[in-house]
Nucleic acid binder design. Sequence first.
DNA 1: TATGAATGAGTTTTCATTCAT
DNA 2: AATGAATGAAAACTCATTCAT
Lengths: 196, 196, 196, 196
Amino acid sequence: MTARKASANHKNQIFEQARQLIRLQGYHHTSIADIAKGCGLSKASIYHHISEKKDLIKIALQSVKAFFKENCFDLIYDKQLPDQKKIDLLFDTLEQYLKEYHGGCLVHNLVHELADSQPEFRDLFQDYFSMWLEGITHILQKAHPDETARTLAEDTVAQLSGAIMMDRLYDTNRYVQRVRTVLVARVLQRETLIVA
Amino acid sequence: MTARKASANHKNQIFEQARQLIRLQGYHHTSIADIAKGCGLSKASIYHHISEKKDLIKIALQSVKAFFKENCFDLIYDKQLPDQKKIDLLFDTLEQYLKEYHGGCLVHNLVHELADSQPEFRDLFQDYFSMWLEGITHILQKAHPDETARTLAEDTVAQLSGAIMMDRLYDTNRYVQRVRTVLVARVLQRETLIVA
Amino acid sequence: MTARKASANHKNQIFEQARQLIRLQGYHHTSIADIAKGCGLSKASIYHHISEKKDLIKIALQSVKAFFKENCFDLIYDKQLPDQKKIDLLFDTLEQYLKEYHGGCLVHNLVHELADSQPEFRDLFQDYFSMWLEGITHILQKAHPDETARTLAEDTVAQLSGAIMMDRLYDTNRYVQRVRTVLVARVLQRETLIVA
Amino acid sequence: MTARKASANHKNQIFEQARQLIRLQGYHHTSIADIAKGCGLSKASIYHHISEKKDLIKIALQSVKAFFKENCFDLIYDKQLPDQKKIDLLFDTLEQYLKEYHGGCLVHNLVHELADSQPEFRDLFQDYFSMWLEGITHILQKAHPDETARTLAEDTVAQLSGAIMMDRLYDTNRYVQRVRTVLVARVLQRETLIVA
DNA sequence: TATGAATGAGTTTTCATTCAT
DNA sequence: AATGAATGAAAACTCATTCAT
């Protein structure tokens, strides 16, 4: 049991290191040696848990998706939950995620780095953003007709993506805060001049 | 003269190749050899025009900034020009830039790839976005008080950044179109439910 | 008993896989992992049956030697058996061996790959060819004086070795067939003696 | 000029080292590092002259083929040259080649090592042996009808291939000498024809 | 300017082998 | 006997950079 745990820990450590380093440095600028060093393992050991470096991308993307799925999107479709609470859930989780490590969101970073040169990951990226688009569309559907809700969700997701980048660049959190404010206003249909 | 022109051409060719390749593949995934091959030059020749690879980042960023400065932001502060024309100028230039090559905007790609690992470029990135923020704030100042204009400009720039990424990922241009629509509405103070 | 059998089976499986893979891919190009995968075992398990990779060479060579010893050379010295039958025995066994898997004869392949870099196996190789040389010399001794018989046997073994290679390269069996034809002729003395 | 010569020398040194080491150790057991060390160059420098390791196989095979073509097969079709001289030319060249370095003939070694795992080189191997087969057939055509000449040439080439291996294994040259003797006898028709 | 050649350091990946379980 | 995990060493190959010509 100790052994099983220990080995599982190494596996998780590797994936966790990969996640962090790729988020901070990008995929191509993160070497297997970096990850190994970060785990106190040898390079060769890494290949006991993956079969090629690209596997780490998949695993990292899936883990970020799972994080938001479990913490937000699995809860958001609950009819009982008031819209405000849903938005809080979303943004509180996001803020926790962004605060935990610096370097913005791994998914956004990777989209820019890999979207064209590694088309095989497109589906994973689209999956991720579909989850956000559908979740936010759902939240907006009480206040708006379907098509409007979808369009506003797209605006929101775009703004959120850019906001994460801007916050990273200017080392603030005001851009993401604004997305929250705007989304709340949209739910409350108080959209005219949304300034806090 | 022929020689001077030829060398200037090589210089431009190199910078142009760098711009394109870095935009498509990212900085770390683009090698000096790639750029040299793309220009029909040898690797060593590249170093007659730059002193290290990083120079290419600077040059590329400056050229994108110059492109938008000359084509938009130098014209936008003209009191004669109606707001609608200014917005058209902005988005037409942007669309032209995005259409010219695929791969989204070089600046956004690089922000994500380099923001943390190469802090020396932060200023350049911030410069670039300041230009956009100030330009759009200016456009919004006729319709809104200063602080509101600034806030809405930040929303707009964030949304635009995310929109470029989303359009790249889904191979459309609808996200950026929406930013234009929303900005027009904001200028016209018709913000309630902005759906085309 | 079940256990003993099972392990013996694994042992044989490993040696059989090694034989096949080394014959096809060469010694250095066949990894312990390849052999393990071919047996459905783990790499570590291989080391319960050998102490280092080189052991597999020895075992493979011995098994090929044993195959021809049991099927030909143990029977060939029987005074009762007519020469023609002996030759049939030899070449039928050889053809069966060559047909069973492609990739020529393991021994010949290994001689070329290892002869100089691993002098420790020289004796094994020489043993193997001595068996052939003596066997064929014996067959020729009825029709020729001892020294002539030996010389013709050497010619035959050389031609046979080259024929196996040529057949492999051109994917035929005509070269080996010719060796059989020539040997029969030599036994029947239907060939003016070519001896210096 | 000095520079051109120097660089050409490095290139030749690399190919020469590759030829020698591959002949002695086999392709898979010869590393780029081995070759680099043998030339006093860095590993990276090797890649200035080849684009992948496999290139060395091609170059080595071509150089051996060129050696025998220039020294034998370009001369052998001369009607003036007596058959005995042609055979001398062939075997003197071969002996020189075999003596120059130990380790038998590079082509034979590679056939065994690569024939199946690297089918892309089959053509090169076949080319090489075709040169020999046609040359020896030509020599035998004065003394024998075409088809017989061809068959005897095939016997001769097979025997020669095996003889090179046997000589290497037993560190003699008697096996190859026998091939010369037998071929002379065949040209002089001092051998009852062995054709099926 | 331009380039062929060279290279140290680094990249991903493989390998034979060991060992605790 | 079997194996998952680990690893030092080495494999092939790449890269940014330098320099003599």
